[in-house]
């Protein structure tokens, strides 16, 4: 268990082999992994909201939003010498745990988070190699920086590897 880097909610961490990145209990939040296939540098963010645009800049937690978190993941990888062209992404999460009610837009936050993450990755031309998004259930994910495999655990279901 010592080789696990824990990523909390609204958090972003970088690592290299032999470490693994793990985040637990993704509900409507989305876990984003961006990795460099050549150097094995990788990072994971656990975002809660689609955009930082509505937030006041002075108390901005950049890891909380899809746009700023992806920006920082790429910046950190670039600092380590990554070529933009060798970066890949895997994403998971964005469930809708509760039925939609029009009384609250926050009920739809899962799908909106997924959209925002995909859009931001597309703008930066980072291909999404695989994904496990949507649905109704929470997820715990673990990324292996050596194999680039992303393990996904959901209650009452077999573990998925994408």
């Amino acid at each position: 268990m010592d080789n696990i880097v824990k990523v909390s909610m609204a958090d972003l961490k970088m690592t290299t082999p032999p470490m693994k990145l793990r985040t637990m209990g993704l509900g409507s939040c989305v876990g984003i992994v961006v990795y460099d296939e050549k150097t094995n540098d990788c990072g994971m963010a656990h975002i809660m909201l689609p955009t930082s645009k509505l937030c006041k800049p002075e108390n901005l937690n950049r890891a909380k939003y899809a746009d700023t978190a992806i920006h920082d993941l790429l910046l950190n990888l670039k600092k380590k010498g990554a070529q933009l062209s060798s970066l890949k992404a895997k994403i998971a999460g964005g469930a809708q745990m509760f039925a939609y009610s029009n009384s609250s837009e926050s009920m739809r936050i899962g799908p909106r988070n997924i959209e925002a993450v995909k859009e931001e990755l597309k703008i930066n031309r980072i291909p999404i190699v695989s994904e496990d998004v949507g649905g109704k259930n929470g997820r715990t994910i673990e990324f292996n920086s050596m194999t680039f495999k992303l393990e996904i655990r959901t209650i009452n279901q077999e573990m998925k590897v994408i």
Binding site: G27, F98, G138, T140
Partner: peptide, 18 residues
């Protein structure tokens, strides 16, 4: 719902997170 406590409660945190 039956699920991971964290995933469930994070739903209620969205309003805070803004």
């Amino acid at each position: 719902v039956v699920d991971m406590a964290m995933a469930i409660v994070s739903h209620g945190l969205i309003a805070h997170s803004m």
